[in-house]
Amino acid sequence: MEEILHKTAEHHRDYTGAKMGMWLFLFTEMLLFGGMFILYSVYRFEFIAEFHAAAKELDTTIGAVNTLILLTSSLTMALSIAALQKGNKNLSLFFQVVTMLLGIAFLGNKYLEWGTKIHHGIYPNSEYLLSLGKGQVMFYGLYFVMTGLHALHVLIGIVIFVFIFFFTLSGDVTSDNTVKLENSGLYWHLVDMIWVYLFPLFYLIT
């Protein structure tokens, strides 16, 4: 009897519960970034001209490339789940690796972008930035904090995928038990969704 109970406990899984927990976490993430978007819109209304002038410095091309990278990584993420559910473990692993590489490419672009800004003397509290005036200081403050926090989320996502890759390899994540992979996917898609708003708000102010 005890053995049966033990076995039951061992195999117990709560798919819906795991999903609910993940969605609740994502709600808090949405509100975390949401608060910053409100802050952004308040200051955008207050410093319309300054925001326009400051946004001209941002490279639309690099922003568009990063948008394409994240959208594609969302696709490969979704495909890795679909592949595993169809029982194709190797294809799923392949798509997981592609997703990770796209995440790394995104961070590489971000590094180049921030590097150029810092090289031009634009970074929080820099002499050049402080000479530009309040609106520009606000714009770049929000730019560095919001894209920085977003990039941190991308980095965390890549680390999660390293774990999921080994879970899939070792058979902890299987075609019958995909919830870990699915929840990591939900997180990754949310990070993509936040970028969908960041891109027009920072790079496409004309």
Partner: peptide, 10 residues
């Protein structure tokens, strides 16, 4: 105790 792996059709 095996449970259904997904609550929906993907």
């Amino acid at each position: 105790m095996e449970q259904r792996n997904t609550g929906h059709t993907a």
